[in-house]
Design a protein around this nucleic acid. Structure first.
Ligand SMILES: [Mn+2]
Ligand SMILES: [Mn+2]
Ligand SMILES: [Zn+2]
Ligand SMILES: [Zn+2]
Lengths: 139, 139
DNA sequence: GCTAATTTTAGAACTCCTCTAAAGTATTGA
DNA sequence: TCAATACTTTAGAGGAGTTCTAAAATTAGC
């Protein structure tokens, strides 16, 4: 279940999102999408790419993360002021946030159940429900 | 149940938080705590204070909001990158976030029920569970 | 009041992120 | 195959929101 998707698939996913498969987008897509579920910041991905000798600017990392998010390949999770993660798990799930370390992690399976949801106020629809369970060190 | 708390109470609440009741803190506390449930940004509170002829710098507004939060008089809610609200409702409740307007609103009563919560990972405790229901315009 | 501790402040600085416009790359279709 | 065209990348400037600095002002305790 951790099977890496083949290269051809990443290429296909970019194409069907209407994104040209450039050197930078392909490389970033492979880092993101062929390594299981990940929660990365733009800075993290940027330095990871540089370490892998992928020449890419920070602006392109931001552009790419937003394009992938708009295309539904990623989802953005905001946990604290100035701390935005991009999540490769686009399924319906929720998060643990470790306040000390800043780490964000999926809550496995159906361990969170939102039992009742309010009706959307008139004229609106519910786009998404985010549940963040904030953790501290046990006192 | 919208009864404004008397001035003496605000003063008392600052004292018991170990905060000197300065001109600025008293005035900000009154704006925040004597007007029902509110969700304000630092900038909003700052301009509200200036309009009310309370001389106060933006740095002091930030300091005060954080001190009040640490003292348990407020709670901070982050909804989007660079968008942090301070909430005068410190009870257990959840939020609607209107993505178009940027408005944050309490979900009334018990209209959200988090039915099952996961066990905290070992070595940690759950500090808080935030549920944010993100709304868009009905298509 | 006088003194010591705390608070406020303007403005600089910082972090994260977006914009600009020029150079580079991918795609199209003759 | 190769312009012509459209899109993408980039360095660096710019911006929003927030924090820091250190000097002046206020508050508290005697
Ligand atoms: Mn975004
Ligand atoms: Mn804070
Ligand atoms: Zn996730
Ligand atoms: Zn609230």
């Amino acid at each position: 279940m951790t099977a890496a998707r083949p290269f051809a698939d990443v290429l296909q996913r970019l194409r069907s999102a209407g994104l040209r498969p450039t050197r930078q987008r392909l490389a970033l897509a492979k880092l993101l999408l062929e390594n299981g579920d990940r929660h990365v910041t733009a800075e993290q991905l940027h330095s990871e790419a540089r370490q892998a000798s992928i020449p890419v600017s920070l602006a392109t990392v931001y552009n790419t993360l937003h394009q992938f998010t708009d295309a539904g390949l990623l989802r953005e999770v905001v946990v604290a002021p100035g701390r935005s993660y991009f999540d490769t798990n686009t399924g319906d799930h929720h998060h643990f946030f470790y306040e000390e370390s800043g780490r964000l992690e999926d809550i496995p399976g159906d361990q969170v159940v939102v039992g009742a949801l309010p009706a959307a106020p008139s004229g609106t629809t519910i786009r998404r429900v985010d549940v963040i369970v904030r953790l501290g060190e046990r006192e």
